[in-house]
């Protein structure tokens, strides 16, 4: 897909994120904005195989949002992909809305698992990858992890299992924006040396700029066509709140909605956002 069209998708998704969180007056903009290019690459960069008209198609690739609090980026990406109408997005977090604070697989098509409690998505992905392989399907499993989430012990249980079971149909992507609710990851609970940790657990490790389509798309495409009997992790270096100057690298916007005024500024900046 043309780079310009990908950028347009990213702009649309960022706008939707701001719009729905502003309307809800609550939600998680920071970690949603940081993972926009990752999501656009997966869904519109010719990486994942899926059919919004047949969301349960057995041969589809699976995407698990382990960092479930980034639900706004998932909702707007799935809407952009045609799973459901965009008009519902502004009911985010309201009573009776299918757009729950954290993703509920029973309420919307395209959501592969109910997530939100951190640390559990990689285990689900391991189970799903095992199941797909057992069925003889070539489907690939992609999982988006938050970096703060890696502090959960269960992540490393799952990491151990993925390499033990030689899951080369599983690719994890770490949204490495270096911030968690209480501050910088390296101040709250150091993750570094992060690539060494994954390597020691038996994973293929790749680091890249998580806002660059030029880096993301070829890497993700290549990740899908492995046969090396090893799981792969992509450490995607990103900026929390990417695209909105007053949110970028600001811890407060992990889980705070912008005001109406701030949203207006955000919309104008998003259009100018240089993702490279």
């Amino acid at each position: 897909m043309d780079d310009l069209l990908l950028r347009e998708r990213a702009v649309n998704i960022r706008e939707s994120i701001i719009e729905m969180i502003t309307a809800a007056k609550s939600g998680h903009p920071g970690g949603s904005l940081s993972s926009v290019e990752i999501m656009v690459s997966l869904f519109f960069g010719g990486v994942m195989s899926y059919d919004p008209k047949n969301p349960q198609l057995e041969s589809r690739d699976r995407f698990f949002l382990s960092k479930g609090h980034a639900a706004p980026v998932l909702y707007s990406t799935l809407a952009e992909a045609g799973y459901f109408d965009k008009s519902g997005l502004n009911t985010l977090r309201q009573l009776n809305s299918p757009f729950q604070g954290h993703p509920d697989m029973r309420k919307l098509p395209g959501i592969e698992a109910s997530t939100g409690s951190l640390g559990q998505g990689l285990s689900i992905s391991v189970g799903c990858a095992l199941g797909l392989r057992l069925k003889g399907l070539n489907s690939h499993v992609f999982t988006l992890l938050g970096d703060g989430e890696l502090e959960e012990g269960q992540i490393w249980e799952a990491a151990m299992a993925a390499s033990h079971f030689k899951l080369d149909n599983l690719t994890a992507i770490v949204d490495r924006n270096r911030l968690q609710i209480d501050g910088f990851t390296e101040e709250i609970m150091s993750l570094e040396p992060l690539t060494d940790k994954w390597r020691a657990f038996g994973w293929n490790v790749l680091e890249l700029n998580g806002h660059s389509f030029d880096e993301l798309i070829p890497a993700l495409k290549k990740a899908k066509k492995r046969g090396d009997k090893k799981p792969q992790v992509i450490i995607a270096h990103t900026i929390k709140g990417k695209g909105v100057s007053f949110m970028e690298n600001v811890c407060d916007f992990h889980g705070k909605a912008p005001s109406e005024e701030q949203a207006k500024i955000a919309y104008s900046e998003i259009k100018e956002c240089d993702v490279q």
Binding site: E58, R62, E112, A113, G119, Q120, L122, S123, I124, S125, V126, G127, C128, A129, L130, G131, L132, L134, K135, G153, Q154, E157, A158, M160, A161, H164
Partner: peptide, 19 residues
């Protein structure tokens, strides 16, 4: 899955999602 009960449940969930 080894001595890892939290992962045990998560992996079981994933296998059920795969049918």
């Amino acid at each position: 899955v080894g001595i890892a009960e939290q992962n045990l449940i998560g992996v079981a969930a994933g296998l059920s999602l795969a049918g």
